[in-house]
Amino acid sequence: MYAKDAIGERCAIGTTDEITVEGIGKRFGSTIALDDVHLTVPRGTVFGLLGPNGAGKTTLVRILTTLLRPDHGRAVVAGYDVVHDAAQLRSVIGLAGQYAAVDETLTGRENLKLVARLYHLPRREWGPRAEAVLERFSLTDAADRPVRTYSGGMRRRLDLGASLVGRPRVLILDEPTTGLDPRTRMELWVYVEDLVRDGVTVLLTTQYLEEAERLAARMAVLDQGKVIAEGTANELKDRLGGAVLEVAVADPKDLERARELLVGVGSGAPSIDPARNTVSVAAHQDAQVVLDAAARLLQGEVPLQDIALRRPSLDDVFLALTGNRTAVEPAAAQGPKRWGRRSS
């Protein structure tokens, strides 16, 4: 197990996998939350786990952080098996999540010292560790105020900081910026990028494609408990054939008709974005596609505002991968670039 001779292994950063998930499955009653999931995350990299609500992201996070046992399969994090070496694993991982799991009544400093204490660090370390985290996350001024007086962004920073008190080798972030305003979100990204420079391996779940694209070197798309795609953002975009044909209709009433007419054009199922009055479909970088589409729409008497081929966004990738289902719950539909922003 390489955790025991970490010094020798450190030379091999980037070549060894820090997280290995092999055939993990989990069901709750008759619901299959995870179905034969395989993943590997190289040491010192950020891996993004994307998927709509209910895709199984949080279940996987809970398994990797020993909060939940898998029904079958095996997962090894930082050299420790999540089931058999759970106790040792807990001392080398950090978990921060969407709930900002910090104590409201304690001050920021007290929260961090408590976590240091529960990591079984020597008493003389509690203060300095807390201080270092407070400084790093610009919370020194608020350190001695109860957390209930903190803003949402400060709480998330403290939560992220609390997960670093034990100086984990692997950091697991479960939707770290869900519910934050765009500015605070970007601030938090800078902190995460900073951590990665220190060599921490990060597994990040998110619903924000922008977030994955910015932070994660590689990503996997989880849908209904299955990994349906894995790769870098560019690799995923290439899977769409390199381009997207986008048609803007003059009248929103024609959207559905346009979608029907475009079936068979390009390399995927066309989908509608009602917000932008467009229908888009994956295609090869080939002008012929534009001509085909234009001819069909002309024949179908759908007036157009615009028609163009463009480089696909991650949005397009997910839409193509997860099909036409509306993926996101309405209650969660806030913020930019979320799942299911488009429906068809």
């Binding site: 106790a87 001392s91 304690l106 529960l118 100086r167 984990p168 080798r169 060599g199």
Partner: peptide, 28 residues
């Protein structure tokens, strides 16, 4: 950041210290 790995120890004394830590938090 990965230099220090928190020591993994087990035993009654640590269990009692964890309980005291949690009790302290709730007493606050």
């Amino acid at each position: 950041m990965t230099e220090d790995i928190a020591p993994v120890r087990n035993g009654w004394d640590l269990g009692i210290r964890d309980i005291l830590g949690m009790a302290w938090r709730n007493l606050v």
